[in-house]
Every structure is written in structure tokens, then in C-alpha cells.
Design a protein around this nucleic acid. Structure first.
Length: 268
DNA sequence: GCGTGATGTTGAA
DNA sequence: TCAACCTCACGCC
């Protein structure tokens, strides 16, 4: 269930558990077995995230992981349980194990291939040196909707369907507004908000976007119960009342994904 | 047990 | 625009 915050959190989790020590590398499922054998016993030097891509450094090579829609990484204390036949990659040392299942990508890369991935990704709100100007240059001359642009990893890396819907709600922006019609001030506010929201997402390992004054306790309604855990304004709340205006949240397909928004609040 | 959908991406038509 | 890929949890028999 990964947007960028999940991947940055996973990079931190790998660093804390595995960095600076030799690691056992295996592929119980077999589909990464050849590479795993090559890497087994190397020291894990670092873990890094860019958008939804995770990179683990082992000697002169990188393991590139992209979870896709279904991928999951699970951690636990040693000893590792018997691996089931869906575990693509298992890392283990004397204290910890990590199991990867169902990723879109799990591949061994050299430095040049890793660099190529960075180059095709846009700036990431969670990478401190990344520059929102690069995204603005594309957005400000695009005839594509801002909702589609926010999901385009070449424009901005790490935003997924939840942050897309939520950040547009928080700024009252109509998701169908064209990139070229967005103001510079609106974009700067969106970027700054994503930096804050996604940092909090890394810290808490979940997405919360509802401002204090709209939280259930403040509004006299029961806390949200949902399988993704966080408090949100519009994501997966189709036909439910808007937390701010009480109007009905709408949903529509946009580029093969479900878009959610409040047509009354999002008018800018 | 079966069908469905999900915080994603790619490549062919 | 659509299918393909990868896994799992849930609702409904």
C-alpha cells in the first residue's frame, strides 16, 4: 500500500535493521535467486528512496525495489519463520529479517542503471534537495489536468492516489483544472503542503490529512475506521458527506484510477 | 470456494 | 484506452 512516504519509511527501516552489517540474501520464491546468491553475505551499505522506488546498496550493486500496487515488505525479529512460496526476497541478519512479496520490480542494478531511474523521476517532496521548480516548469505549460499531473512520476515523484486527492482538497483546487491554469502561488502551496504531509506520513507510517479543526473529535463524529488507517477528507469517501461543507463527495475515473473530490469545496 | 478491488507501472493497440 | 503483472483481504455464497 505504497505511496512515497511508505518507501522512505522502508528505507529508514532497512537502514536501522541492516545497514553496516553483512546480510543473508535469499529468494525463497526463486525469481530473484541468481542475484540473491551473488549478493548473499555482502554488507548492506545504505538504503535510499526516490519517489516510490527503493534502493539497497550492497557493495558495488543496488537492489532496486518497486512495490507497485500489491507489493509488501514485512519485518520481524530473528529467527525468521519458514519462508512461504511468495517471498521474492528475504534479507536476514542475527537480529532481523525482511520479506518482500508481490513487487512490480526487484532487480539488481549497477550505478548507471540506478542513475537512469533517478533521471526519469521528477522532484520528490521527501528529498530535501529536490527542487519544486522542475515540476512547475512542466505543470505551468501543460494542458493536462492537475489531478493527472500529480500522479505523473516524471513530474513529481512519490505522490499517489491518496495524496493527490487530499492535497487538492486541502487547497480547494478543482482536480480538472489544467496545469497551465494553476498559479505559481497555488503550486508553491501544494508543494510545501506535500512536504509537510509526507514527512508526517513517514513518521507515522500512514496518511493523515485532516486539519485539527476538522478531526472527528472536533466535529463530534466517530473516528474513521478504514483499512488504510488515516484520517482523510475525500479519499474513498464517495457519496459520503464532506467533512467541511457537508456536501456529497464525488468520484470519477481518471487515467484508470479513482479520483475523489468535493465539487463544492474544490472550485479554484 | 469464488469474485472483487487496492495507496502502481508498463507496454501494446 | 486497455490488458498484463504481482498478492492478499474481504464479502458473499
Amino acid at each position: 500500500m505504497p505511496e512515497g512516504h511508505t518507501i522512505h519509511r522502508l528505507a529508514q527501516d532497512h537502514t536501522a535493521r541492516f545497514a553496516g552489517r553483512p546480510v543473508r540474501v535469499s529468494s525463497p520464491q526463486g525469481r530473484f535467486a541468481e542475484s540473491a546468491a551473488l549478493l548473499d553475505g555482502r554488507t548492506l551499505e545504505s538504503a535510499e528512496a526516490h519517489g516510490k522506488h527503493l534502493f539497497l546498496e550492497l557493495g558495488d550493486a543496488w537492489i532496486h525495489i518497486h512495490l507497485g500496487l500489491f507489493g509488501k515488505l514485512g519485518f520481524g525479529p530473528a529467527p525468521a519463520p519458514p519462508a512461504t512460496d511468495t517471498v521474492r526476497l528475504r534479507l536476514a541478519n542475527g537480529d532481523h529479517w525482511a520479506d518482500l512479496r508481490g513487487p512490480t520490480a526487484c532487480a539488481l542494478l549497477g550505478e548507471g542503471e540506478k542513475k537512469a531511474i533517478h533521471e526519469r523521476l521528477g522532484p520528490d517532496p521527501l528529498r530535501p534537495d529536490d527542487d519544486p521548480d522542475r515540476a512547475w516548469k512542466r505543470i505551468s505549460r501543460s494542458r493536462t489536468s492537475v489531478a493527472a499531473l500529480l500522479m505523473d512520476q516524471k513530474v513529481i515523484a512519490g505522490v499517489g492516489n491518496v495524496y493527490r486527492a487530499e492535497v487538492l482538497f486541502r487547497h480547494g483546487i478543482d482536480p480538472y483544472r489544467l496545469g497551465k491554469d494553476l498559479t505559481r502561488a497555488q503550486w508553491d502551496a501544494i508543494w510545501a503542503d506535500l512536504v509537510g504531509l509526507m514527512r508526517e506520513g513517514v513518521r507515522n507510517n500512514r496518511i493523515d490529512t485532516v486539519r485539527d479543526e476538522h478531526l472527528p473529535e472536533a466535529m463530534g463524529r466517530p473516528p474513521r475506521v478504514d483499512d488504510h488507517g488515516g484520517e482523510v477528507y475525500v479519499y474513498r469517501r464517495a457519496n459520503m458527506p464532506c467533512h467541511v461543507c457537508g456536501g456529497e463527495i464525488r468520484t470519477a475515473g481518471l487515467a484508470a484510477r479513482n479520483l475523489f473530490w468535493c465539487p463544492h469545496c474544490q472550485i479554484r
